[in-house]
Design a protein around this nucleic acid. Structure first.
Length: 545
RNA sequence: UGGGCUAUGGCCAAGAGGUUAAGGCAUCGGACUUUGACUCCGACAUCGGUGGUUCGAAUCCACCUAGCCCAGCCA
């Protein structure tokens, strides 16, 4: 796929000018939550941009805050990225660099570019000024270098309580860029780190740690999102004054935002805790694990992300755009089978009661490699309730009605003659007759049927739970609390049937002919399958009243 | 109100002085069809606004408007 974007241009220029021989990129997640669709842009683009130029792509966990991080998340993140197919050349942890980070911070101290500040968090906030008024310098700003050296070392050695002191960069309290107003470089924070345990009680802040991590790894192009543009001067300041050998370049791009979707970790957590969704991988969510469970092929996510490119503007993409890439991939890769989600019984009155025919049918006409399967046909079948209407509603109706003849896909023409209703007045059984001359594959052309519908033979039908998903949010008014916006119909569970002689496995996607793509859920048990609707088929059928 | 960004059709998005303003999604026609799917044809913008520079501007300049981000010892 051809994706044009300004970062690709920058890389090409850098390669041509000889600034770099090969690009080195990285995806630097903090292991404190699940990855979602929005992250896919960063992961895929970093990976693609490296690989397209024979470069290197790293996965680096930005684990500089032990209070929020957990190995549980590093495992989940690794699993999701691997699933996306973005193999990393090497795996790193920012915490592996704590020694060198400390050493470089000490260098800053010795150069008089950083100082230990005794102000409380509250006091620092108050003296930082605001958007329009400059900040005031800390009374500790001019501490002698020797004292700073001693104090910073004491901080590291655990001689102070959490929050008692911080190390700050000495830059400019009057800068219009808030990030340059003597930002905190190290804070004291006791808590067991998932990787380094109790070795440290001081941890570097993102603004200091990130540029060093990039420089240490030799990252050439450090991609991040727009909100870090203001941090770039600081990024460059640290790389320069810490005297890092490699000088990475930070480049910002716009985040991938999906319209009307819940993406924030706290919001998702809330939905999980309140039981609105069934977990972080509830198929209605857009976490990568949820998409995987719903059956979205990683290839579809790649194509989607690459089609969107890497803009510097910020828009909201509609999720249905992804649907098209899902269908596009599944179209040739999925086997197509018959399934009914809302079964209505059809009895073929002129078909011998004890007769069973075996019909051969290809799994996918557009992909012969998927092979053939066998459908059975007997006098009792199921069709979908919406494929029958007692009276033909309009000339466009291409399904079954009394007196009309339709083709049962891969089988015969049948004509509906009578209906039987249940106590509630719902269609219970349709009595029909078939025409043996119309068997599929015989080239019968004497009559045109009113349409073609699918069926499942009752004799071999396998029960299946079919979960249909709709948008989790029904209200686009983002001012309302999330709970007030959830769509109660976002998950509908149906009990239906799929054709027999199949052996669906968890994660396998099928096209249910004429309805959509469905993927086998892990909740399936032997003989009773559970399918998640991945995406519906498109339809130009517009029922009009 | 200080600073940093962004602004191209319903939704994304190419475009970097001279192109008929790519492409995708959506939509609307139509053909085909043993999936109302697929496929195939066809329709669908003068580029936030206003001035300017130029033979010529979405592309350069000025001003204006709108939106996003920044005042964590989060990342």
């Amino acid at each position: 796929m051809e994706d044009k974007n300004f970062i690709r241009k920058i890389i090409e220029d850098d390669l041509q000018s000889g600034k770099h021989e090969r690009p080195i990129t990285r995806f630097p997640p903090e292991p404190n939550g699940f990855l979602h669709l929005g992250h896919a842009r960063a992961i895929i683009m970093n990976h693609v941009l490296a690989k397209d130029y024979d470069g290197t792509f790293y996965l680096r966990f930005d684990d500089t805050n032990p209070l929020t991080e957990d190995t549980l998340y590093v495992e989940a993140i690794k699993r999701d990225i691997a699933w996306l197919g973005c193999e990393w050349d090497e795996l790193f942890f920012a915490s592996d660099y704590f020694d060198i980070m400390y050493e470089r911070a000490m260098l800053l101290v010795k150069k008089g570019l950083a100082y230990v500040c005794d102000l409380s968090a509250e006091a620092i906030r108050k003296t930082r000024g605001d958007l329009t008024t400059p900040g005031e310098e800390s009374p500790y700003r001019d501490r002698p270098v020797e004292e700073n050296v001693r104090l910073f070392e004491a901080m590291k050695n655990g001689e102070f309580a959490d929050g008692e002191k911080v190390l700050r960069a000495k830059i400019d309290m009057k800068s219009p860029n808030m990030n340059m107003r003597d930002p905190v470089v190290y804070r004291i924070q006791r808590g067991r780190h998932h990787n380094t345990g109790d070795k440290w009680c001081i941890y570097p802040m993102y603004d200091f740690a990130h540029p060093l991590e990039d420089a240490i790894e030799g990252i050439t192009h450090s991609l991040c999102s727009l909100e870090f543009e203001d941090h770039r001067p600081l990024y460059d300041w640290f790389v320069k004054h810490c005297e890092m050998e490699n000088v990475p370049r930070q480049i910002e791009f716009g985040k991938l935002k999906i319209a009307n979707q819940i993406v924030g970790k706290r919001n998702i957590r809330q939905l999980v805790e309140k039981g609105v969704v069934d977990g972080w991988d509830d198929p209605r969510l857009v976490t990568l694990s949820a998409l995987r469970r719903r059956g979205v092929p990683p290839e579809a996510i790649h194509n989607f992300v690459r089609a969107l490119g890497l803009p510097k503007s910020e828009g909201e993409t509609e999720l249905h755009m992804l649907d098209e890439y899902i269908r596009d991939h599944l179209k040739v890769h999925a086997r197509r089978i018959h399934a009914v989600t809302d079964p209505v019984k059809v009895v073929i009155t002129n078909y011998p009661e004890d007769k069973v025919e075996r019909l051969q049918a290809p799994f996918n006409r557009e992909n012969e490699a998927l092979g053939m399967r066998e459908l059975t046909f007997s006098n009792t079948l199921y069709i979908d309730r919406e494929d029958f209407l007692e009276e033909k509603p309009n000339k466009k109706w291409k399904r079954l009605s009394l007196g009309l003849e339709v083709r049962l896909m891969h089988a015969y023409f049948i004509k509906a003659n009578e209906v039987e209703y249940d106590a509630d007045g719902r269609v219970e059984t349709i009595y029909a007759t078939y025409d043996p001359k119309t068997k599929s594959g015989t080239g019968f052309t004497e009559r045109k049927p009113n349409g073609t519908i699918h069926f499942v033979d009752a004799l071999t039908a396998v029960p299946a739970e079919i979960r249909l998903y709709g948008n989790l949010l029904e209200d686009t008014d983002s001012d309302k609390p999330i709970e007030a916006r959830v769509n109660k119909q976002s998950k509908i569970v149906k009990q239906g049937f799929i054709e027999g002689s199949l052996t669906p496995e968890t994660g396998e996607s099928y096209q249910f002919v004429r309805t959509g793509y469905f993927t086998v859920d892990d909740d399936s048990t032997e003989g009773s399958f559970v399918f998640n609707r991945t995406v519906a088929l498109k339809s130009s059928f517009k029922p009009k009243k």
